[in-house]
Nucleic acid binder design. Structure first.
Lengths: 118, 118
DNA sequence: ATCGTCTATCGTCAATGCACGATTATAATA
DNA sequence: TATTATAATCGTGCATTGACGATAGACGAT
């Protein structure tokens, strides 16, 4: 059975929301998301997840295996990716299946545009 | 007279270069640039600079005046923006005119695409 | 019930980030 | 030459980051 992981945030983001967002909020949100990908290991994780078909999600141990880091370090990076809004996890028994937040790439790119070029 | 500020890095970036760049380098570069805009004050600075016509560049004191931070703090943020490749400065007498690195927005957006979606 | 697997968290350490006031260095100006 | 303006840097304090090994908790399988 698949249960919600309560601390894992939303599964999708809506680009429409950005239009009504005030600039201060935009700035903070862009800063937060940017911090999420401010480390090569986290970029690698985001890339792994974004290239994965939805029905074949990675579990944490897959990511540990793919990176040259200890399990604790990967878990910490995953935590930051969740806190900064890139990733969410679904608990499936003893495992956690990790996914990229839906539409986050378009959302980020649009946020960069809005926060900097407007 | 306008002189080079030796520590201020390049003035333009070329998106073409990204095509030949290996993935490890891409990751590091994206991580570095992302760190640059991982703070609201630095996003504000980048935004100020990107909205400025080339012939009317800001000097550092303009930026200090626009932000609710001490001069030392702004100087530190500007240093990070230079180190991470967003901004360069041209020394003009006692002043430093700050500019956004040419084409950096397109470069960053393309880097996000390449490092994550390829 | 016990074992092995999976994942989060704890504790630690060194390094870095961010804020500030104070100081210094340089250039323009009076 | 003395003064003022500009910007970088120093020194400090505090919080955060990033790495790790060790541990704990949850689950499935035997």
């Amino acid at each position: 059975m698949i249960t919600d992981a309560s601390s894992c945030g939303q599964r999708f983001v809506d680009v429409e929301v950005l239009e009504k967002m005030d600039y201060e909020t935009c700035k903070k949100m862009l800063a937060r998301l940017s911090k999420g990908i401010a480390h090569p290991a986290r970029i690698e994780i985001v890339r792994m997840l974004s290239n994965k078909p939805a029905e074949k999600k990675y579990i944490c141990s897959d990511i540990v295996r793919a990176l040259p880091l200890a399990q604790a370090s990967v878990s910490q990076h995953l935590k930051i990716l969740k806190e900064t809004g890139w990733v969410y996890g679904e608990i499936d028994g003893a495992r956690v299946r990790c996914s990229l937040v839906g539409n986050i790439m378009e959302y980020y790119r649009e946020l960069v545009r809005k926060a900097i070029q407007e």
